[in-house]
């Protein structure tokens, strides 16, 4: 069996590179997983207070999303789909993501202690980030994706999540909490701000059509 690295969709403009670029931009901007689907909210709300930690978590999420999307694509295409047990995708994806994060944690700890301590508790937190599972599941609904498309789709979503948490951290650092009514401090005001950012992101949908 050969892996179809890319399946060109009929009607899509340009060659493979253009198609991948569009998938990436669409995933990162118009279909931003955090701002349009509100997935991965718990860590988004909890960690977005500071730019440094947001960057750490965001990069980790982006990396894991990219790689697990590709792995899960292969698992779906060569294990669950041929055996006719696609209904197992959900649970298998969870297990794959958990195992991948475990291995990644061990590898980072072994080879880059500095990065390990910088990411610290974020890596285990990623295991239960629903955005990552969401990306793998949404990928299955996309017609005609090959391995490259899956990889780029994962990367786009991951970068979109990173972008969203960085935007929020930038805003929250400037926010003077004492001027906000007590009941709205913390998570409530963050949710309101993410709603406004999400409205802004609708502007991208006119830019990329896919």
């Amino acid at each position: 069996m050969t892996v179809p690295l890319a399946v060109t969709t009929p009607g899509a403009p340009g060659g493979l590179a253009a198609q991948l670029l569009i998938i990436f931009l669409a995933a990162a901007l118009t279909d931003n997983i955090l701002l349009t689907r509100f997935l991965g909210m718990c860590s988004f709300l909890a960690i977005s207070r500071q730019m440094k930690t947001s960057l750490g978590l965001g990069v980790a999420v982006a990396f894991v999303t990219t790689v697990t999307a590709a792995i899960n694509y292969l698992v779906h295409r060569y294990i669950t789909a041929p055996l006719g047990v696609e209904f197992l995708d959900l649970i298998v994806f969870i297990v794959v993501i958990a195992a991948f994060v475990q291995i990644l944690e061990m590898a980072v700890e072994r080879f880059s202690p500095a990065l390990y301590f910088a990411l610290g508790i974020f890596l285990p937190l990623i295991t239960v980030n629903c955005a990552i599972l969401g990306v793998s599941l949404f990928m299955l609904n996309k017609q005609g994706y090959g391995l490259w498309q899956a990889l780029v789709y994962g990367a786009g979503n991951g970068v979109g999540w990173l972008l969203a948490i960085l935007l929020m951290a930038g805003i929250r650092q400037k926010l003077k909490e004492d001027k906000i009514p007590a009941g709205l401090r913390g998570a409530p005001i963050t949710l309101i701000i993410s709603g406004i950012i999400a409205l802004g992101f609708i502007g991208f949908s006119g830019m990329v059509k896919f």
């Binding site: 698992v75 047990v85 794959v96």
Partner: peptide
């Protein structure tokens, strides 16, 4: 098939983890 697949995948991943733990 479903039960077998799931078990096989879990066992496979566990083995990968054990090996990774051994070396990493």
């Amino acid at each position: 098939i479903a039960v077998g697949t799931l078990c096989a995948i879990c066992v496979g991943l566990s083995l990968v983890l054990v090996v990774a733990d051994r070396y990493l």
